[in-house]
Design a protein around this nucleic acid. Structure first.
Length: 427
RNA sequence: GGGCCCGUAGCGAAAUUGGUUAUCGCGCCUCCCUGUCACGGAGGAGACUGCCGGUUCGAGUCCGGUCGAGCCCGCCA
């Protein structure tokens, strides 16, 4: 008999079906025993004889008659006739997966990752993540971006600073990519519009609920732009469609978390950094020092302001100080202390950074000089600008941060299968 | 890198100002229960309270060290 998927069990009403899956829970009422069996499409209740030998966690193959039954939660149940344990659980599970909520400390959740991932609510995170990646790639192509994959083992750091990992590379020393920045800019000179979904490595020893040392960046870069607003507005449209796809396909997973998905407005509001700083000081009494980015508390308040003032979970903060941004950032021609760029906040957390880049060779060189960056080792990048790179810009977006914010997860690490942080290299 | 908290059965937690046999829930084992769905009921096993040292008649509780974990700041996506 062919395998019947639990998610499509209604198609087998009043017929024999063969299901394969894991025993999620057992409810033994004496003369009647209910098994909750889980496969990758869902769960189903199976009624079995009290003499059946089976334990929670066993991988089983069951055949039986599928009946419509209002007494079962999904409306269907299987009268189990034959049950084979194809792979038994040889040890009691160290964590309890049979309850609606998994309720573990983060440390336990991650230490037992191979098992905690089996819980439906944990799985839901990664089903949504799958939808996010799929729709991002789909929507970007609709906007004529070409998907590229750039190297992650690099000869030079892309973002400056000291926050890159060093690795041995034969006789040389290499660094792990902090971003695809150089390569996507180079590719603007080739394909005009490119995007990448790829690993980003950051060697910062951070201890927060929103940082990890390896994450998946959703990058994009586009040529012949008029200004950075064109980039931001493209990102706005992309997100709107991505969220529409998540709404459409992710309903069952969002429901597990009782989440009403945020609406991405047609026009996410823009506000200058200097302005939002004034507002959060006057409105919420939170002061941030001059000439720098707002702190996490300030971001939270900026998110609150966006919600109260514009009814939006999203807000673009623009014109960050040039001193805070990387050397390739385009300074504002009307005020070179500020930059032509933005951060995108979602529910008070930065999920993307973007803006216009410097595209003229000599401006790039002088910018590097001002930042004290030597072109040595990055000639392949710098020299490209001798050969007419069009005005361009793009963004980098944190995919896991989006999922964290959608589901209101406590930590970004919950949105990563096997997260890497300062202390965690295993599993 | 700076700061703040926390380590108690497999898991999640409790334990008055230091005081007798370390408590509860889940899970596990045994038994009862034909409609449960966080099933229910009865009973049981399971902890040298992270580790080392100190103070004290007495330490899960106080002190020092050590190992482990979490969070905040910085930095960023």
């Amino acid at each position: 008999m062919e395998r019947a998927l639990i998610g499509k069990i209604s198609e087998y009403e009043d017929k024999q079906a063969l299901i394969k899956g894991r025993v999620f829970n057992i409810r033994n009422l004496g003369n009647i025993v209910f098994l909750i069996v889980q496969d990758y499409t869902g769960t189903i209740q199976v009624v079995v004889d009290k003499s059946t030998e089976v334990k929670t966690g066993d991988a089983v193959v069951i055949t039986g008659l599928v009946k419509k039954d209002a007494r079962a939660k999904s409306g269907f149940e299987i009268k189990g006739e034959k049950l084979e344990v194809v792979s038994p659980n040889i040890e009691d599970l160290p964590i309890d997966l049979s309850k609606e909520d998994i309720n573990l400390n983060l440390n336990t959740l991650l230490d037992y990752r191979p098992l905690s991932l089996r819980h439906p609510k944990v799985q839901a995170i990664f089903k949504l993540y799958d939808i996010l990646l799929k729709s991002y790639e789909k929507v970007m192509r609709e906007y004529d971006f070409t998907e590229i994959k750039t190297p992650k083992i690099l000869g030079t750091a892309t973002e400056g600073g000291a926050n890159f990992f060093k690795v041995k590379y034969f006789e040389k020393e290499a660094t792990l990519a902090q971003s695809p920045q150089f390569y996507k800019q180079i590719m603007v000179g080739v394909l005009e519009r490119v995007f990448e979904v790829g690993s980003v490595f950051r060697a910062e020893p951070h201890f927060t609920t929103r940082h990890v040392n390896e994450y998946i960046g959703l990058d994009a870069e586009m040529g012949y732009i008029v200004d950075f607003y064109e980039v931001a507005k493209t990102l706005n449209k992309v997100l709107q469609q991505v969220f529409a796809e998540i709404e459409k396909e992710g309903k069952p997973y969002l429901d597990l978390y009782n989440i009403e998905l945020s609406k991405v407005p047609d026009e996410i509001p823009f506000i200058k950094l200097s302005e939002i700083k004034k507002i959060i000081k006057e409105k919420y009494g939170h002061e941030v020092s001059e000439g720098t980015d707002i702190d996490p508390k300030g971001e939270e308040l900026a998110g609150k302001y966006a919600k109260e003032e514009f009814g939006s979970d999203f807000i673009f903060i623009t014109h960050y100080p040039w001193s805070d941004r990387p050397f390739y950032t385009m300074p504002d021609p009307t005020n070179p202390e500020e930059t032509c760029g933005f951060d995108l906040l979602y529910k008070g957390l930065e999920i993307a950074t973007g803006g216009q880049r410097i595209h003229k060779y000599d401006e790039l060189l002088s910018s590097m000089k001002k930042k004290g960056i030597k072109p040595k080792g990055m000639e392949f990048y710098v020299d490209t600008f001798k050969y007419a790179i069009p005005p361009h810009g793009g963004w980098g977006m944190g995919s896991e941060r989006i999922i964290k914010q959608i589901l209101n997860l406590e930590s970004i690490k919950e949105a990563i299968l096997f997260p890497r942080d300062v202390k965690r290299l295993i599993p």
